[in-house]
């Protein structure tokens, strides 16, 4: 096992209370595997990702408990200095918004080589050559000539390619992609996703893909973790999730994706209501106020994540051995 996350809890202590952004999340990841973490905005996906790098700003945030095992070692116990040798090197991250992720006052060549020089003991010249190779690899035309260009001279899609080149510059074991295509238009989205999965095969990295879009999960992910209000509500292989979803929330998310291969529906469905404030999470199952299958027990008892078939976990009172009882 390359990465094991056990019972991770990241809370933020702010004036009006405690935000339980990540509340007991566990998952694991192997080399070459892709895990998709899916959920609405504010479900704790990004905080989960940042916690894996121990990049929570303290205060107000704090990783309360749990472990992040990278090849068996709990990196949450590492010193800041050893963490720096992991960040960008063994675990790299692509951020959501490429327009603000690159420093506007340094050339992109500088920013990519900087990562390489931080982690690898090679000369500046070699690092620059490597950067050219990386930029070529992610499909930036005239890579050598663009080394000395600044971020504002690139389009959004090209900037995200630079970010990907930067993230892959040290051949990381794990690549975290936090909504890598949210800020991009649809055609660019497809190109970037194709690029990521292509490079994954080449480097045999593991990918954690964070998204709110079930549409892009199918083509990329091996396993899916669905998060709601800081908790994992369903965790399974991608096929199981698509064919036998075992949580009303997962079901709702999937219904809200437009599909081209189905006859046109009257109206695109959506999940009623909005995600709860993480300070004031509803008692019992935090999804119950929005759930059409909610019964009494859902309002009182927090459901446990249980294995309903081998490798398929769901946290719902209404789920039995045969899947979601009500469907």
């Amino acid at each position: 096992m390359l990465l094991g996350v056990n019972n991770l809890k990241t809370y933020f202590y702010i004036e009006c209370g405690v935000v339980k952004a990540v509340d007991g999340v566990s998952f694991s990841l192997d080399r070459g595997e892709t895990l998709a973490i899916v959920g609405e905005s504010g479900s704790g996906k990004s905080v989960t990702a940042l916690s894996l790098l121990n990049l929570i700003s303290t205060p107000p945030g704090k990783i309360l408990e749990g472990e992040v095992l990278l090849e068996g070692e709990n990196i949450l116990e590492f010193s800041e200095k050893s963490l720096q040798t992991i960040r960008g090197n063994k675990i790299a991250m692509i951020f959501q918004d490429p327009t603000t992720s690159l420093n506007p006052v340094f050339t992109i060549g500088n920013q990519v080589t900087e990562t390489i020089l931080t982690h690898q003991n090679i000369s500046k010249k070699e690092a620059r050559e490597k950067t050219v190779k990386l930029l070529k690899m992610v499909g930036i035309p005239n890579a050598r000539g663009r080394l000395y260009d600044y971020p504002h001279q690139f389009s959004g899609g090209m900037r995200q390619r630079v970010m990907i080149a930067m993230a892959l510059s040290c051949e990381p074991d794990i690549l975290i992609a936090d909504e890598p295509t949210t800020a991009l238009d649809v055609t660019t989205q497809a190109q970037i996703l194709e690029l990521i999965s292509g490079l994954q095969k080449e480097l045999n990295s593991a990918i954690i893909l964070i998204t709110h879009d079930f549409g892009i999960v199918a083509g990329l992910a091996d396993r899916v973790l669905v998060m709601y209000a800081g908790k994992a509500v369903e965790y399974a292989d991608v096929d199981a999730i698509y064919y036998r979803p075992c949580h009303p929330y997962t079901l709702g998310l999937m219904k809200s994706v437009t599909r081209l291969d189905e006859p046109r529906r009257e109206k695109l469905q959506s999940i009623k209501g909005s995600p709860p404030s993480l300070i004031d999470v509803p008692p019992g199952c935090s999804f119950h106020p929005r759930c059409e299958f909610a019964i009494d027990v859902c309002r009182k008892k927090i459901p446990k994540l249980i294995e309903i078939e081998p490798g398929h976990f769901s946290a719902c009172h209404r789920v039995g051995k045969g899947g979601l009882e009500v469907i």
Binding site: R87, N103, T118
Partner: peptide, 15 residues
Amino acid sequence: DCNYIWVARAKGLSE
């Protein structure tokens, strides 16, 4: 507080 500062941290640069 800017994004690129967090990116720099995620790159493993020293504070």
